[in-house]
Simulated assay, not measured.
Amino acid sequence: MAVDLDLPTTVLASTFLASGALHLVRPQVFEPMVPTPLRGHDRLLVRVSGVAEIACGAGLLVPPTREMAGWAGAALLVGVFPANLQMSIDHARRAQRTQTPQAIGVLAGTLARLPLQWPLVRIALRAAGRG
């Protein structure tokens, strides 16, 4: 069976698969990212998002499911954006409090990650046939 994937879709699928697996194996890494209004169900939300990432990644690799996986992946990326924002807010507070080079560097990384979410959404939409 020919997979017929372009490089951006392959990278997005691989990213979803790796990140989803990490959500399931090490959920405690992601729990602090759960936005404050959703706290209390951290482990469940992290696991559900991990399963969703794996489903999107696998779906992008299979031509008959690629369109649906593209739509689902774009929605997932938009849906988890508040968690990425929460991570930046938390690291900004930590950097302000400690003012260490390491804390400032981690903050810079989380801030740089935020605008990268949108090209991933475009890749997912293109995989869905809408980009």
Results as ranks from 00 to 15, higher is better:
6 D>W: 09
124 A>N: 03
123 I>H: 00
42 D>A: 10
126 R>I: 03
51 V>P: 09
88 S>W: 05
26 R>Y: 08
64 P>K: 07
129 G>I: 00
108 A>L: 13
3 V>D: 14
83 A>C: 07
96 Q>H: 13
81 F>M: 10
81 F>H: 01
116 L>Y: 05
127 A>I: 01
44 L>H: 12
101 P>A: 13
36 T>S: 10
47 R>T: 03
87 M>S: 15
120 L>E: 01
89 I>V: 14
7 L>F: 08
105 G>F: 06
98 T>L: 15
103 A>L: 09
92 A>S: 15
58 A>Q: 02
94 R>H: 14
42 D>Y: 01
57 G>A: 10
90 D>L: 14
21 A>F: 11
39 R>A: 12
17 L>S: 10
96 Q>Y: 08
92 A>W: 12
102 Q>R: 11
30 F>R: 04
23 H>Y: 08
104 I>H: 12
30 F>S: 06
13 A>G: 10
42 D>G: 09
7 L>R: 08
10 T>R: 13
80 V>Y: 14
119 P>R: 04
118 W>F: 14
37 P>G: 11
78 V>R: 05
105 G>P: 09
27 P>T: 00
100 T>R: 09
119 P>G: 11
116 L>E: 11
44 L>D: 11
95 A>K: 07
129 G>M: 05
64 P>A: 12
26 R>D: 08
88 S>T: 12
36 T>C: 05
125 L>S: 05
73 G>V: 00
83 A>L: 02
88 S>Q: 10
99 Q>G: 09
17 L>R: 03
70 G>I: 01
112 A>F: 12
38 L>F: 15
55 A>G: 07
100 T>I: 05
40 G>Q: 13
23 H>A: 13
16 F>Y: 12
17 L>Y: 02
64 P>E: 11
117 Q>E: 07
6 D>T: 08
114 L>A: 07
84 N>V: 00
48 V>N: 12
63 P>L: 04
10 T>G: 15
16 F>E: 00
29 V>F: 11
108 A>Q: 11
3 V>L: 14
80 V>W: 01
9 T>D: 05
127 A>G: 15
122 R>A: 13
14 S>D: 04
97 R>G: 09
50 G>V: 04
52 A>S: 13
57 G>L: 04
18 A>S: 15
84 N>S: 06
128 A>R: 02
88 S>R: 06
130 R>T: 06
108 A>G: 15
46 V>M: 03
2 A>D: 14
15 T>V: 02
54 I>Y: 08
46 V>P: 01
37 P>K: 10
14 S>I: 02
56 C>Q: 03
100 T>H: 07
13 A>T: 11
81 F>V: 00
65 T>L: 15
62 V>T: 04
4 D>P: 06
56 C>T: 00
